[in-house]
Design a binder for these strands. Structure first.
Lengths: 199, 199
DNA sequence: GTCTATAGGTGGATAGAC
DNA sequence: GTCTATCCACCTATAGAC
């Protein structure tokens, strides 16, 4: 792997291990196996490194979400979006934590927070569109699509962040995946129109 | 206020403002208006200060949760627990962030994580009990109480943490409270037995 | 592109006076 | 209990050699 890519990779690892408080250029350099100053040939400064990490995280996340569009029905596309969300969180926990679990103010990236905010809004719009499809198709009750989308986001984010924070350590990977299914089932059940709720 | 209490208060404020990375004994001392060394008369070291803050957070949270028991029916008690959860998150955002949004490993409090884990488990058991009540009363479908409780926790935690991370800034306090009601409604709807789902 | 050397800063913690 | 003085560790970032 190229040095630059390795720097980004080890940055993510260190960030997850030690948090923002323990993240340092020296720490990254040591993991990569170069001197601390070498990093400055690849990134202007510490903020630029973090900003790049954040940006690449959003790019990857966007690709994951796009998988959802392969679904053939509105409900299936929403379901796939849910799976894509958890796939990303579990396969890129460092990126997920940086993107969704770190307060903007804590990042201290004034310049990049604009871009991050735009990315976040874009993600939310994608979700709102999936919800609108479901409402139009009659599989969801007629409710404010934005409230509904926010409810879905909060629910999946809550589960993902409890998992990544280590608060569900007694669940193994398989049990967690099962709970994901349970969660997606509950979301669908809670949004179905009254006519669809009889079993 | 006593110096010790003021130290704890300002510690919470600083933690919320700057995050773990920006939290320092000197920073706390400056806010309190004493020298940095004065803090060491009240707390053995930085970890002890954080541990105390965490402990007091769980105590306060426990008192909030106890309000739920004033509800007259199982469903009302669960609903009140939901409200207590959001009340605590909104009124004690610093404590909430420290307790539920900071990875244990990032805190670096090996000694205290035992106590924190026990507290967390206690909270979860409380929620499981409320769910069991609802199932026994027939207002919830017969499902694994622990899965159900986890679903509820993840959902309310997701909403609270998005809020505290500043990702829902376009919602004012009133709109957010309204969405809380929406969320609690969705949770109940998703867990109701099939027989109760006809409108 | 990577190194060593180094400047300049921040932060945790202690010693000892008051 | 609070202060000043101080030590030491660690951090970001730059300069200049290779």
């Amino acid at each position: 792997m190229e040095t630059r890519a390795r720097i980004l990779h080890e940055s993510g690892e260190l960030l997850r291990e030690k948090g923002m408080a323990g993240f340092s250029m020296r720490g990254v350099a040591e993991r990569v196996g170069v001197s601390a100053t070498a990093l400055y040939r690849h990134f202007e400064d510490k903020d630029a490194l973090l900003a790049t990490l954040l940006e690449e995280g959003f790019s990857t996340f966007g690709r994951y979400l796009m998988r959802a569009l392969a679904g053939k029905t509105p409900l299936e596309r929403l379901r796939r979006a849910g799976h894509a969300y958890f796939d990303f969180a579990l396969e890129h926990p460092r990126d997920y934590a940086l993107m969704f679990m770190t307060p903007c103010r804590e990042l201290g990236l004034d310049s990049v927070s604009e871009g991050a905010k735009a990315r976040m809004d874009g993600t939310f719009v994608f979700l709102v569109d999936r919800v609108k499809e479901c409402i139009a198709a009659g599989v969801f009750a007629e409710q404010d699509p934005r409230s509904t989308a926010l409810h879905i986001w909060a629910t999946v984010h809550g589960l993902a962040s409890l998992r990544l924070n280590g608060q569900l350590e007694d669940l193994d990977e398989r049990a967690f995946r099962q709970h994901v299914e349970f969660t997606l089932d509950r979301i669908e059940a809670s949004l179905a129109p009254a006519s669809a709720r009889r079993r």
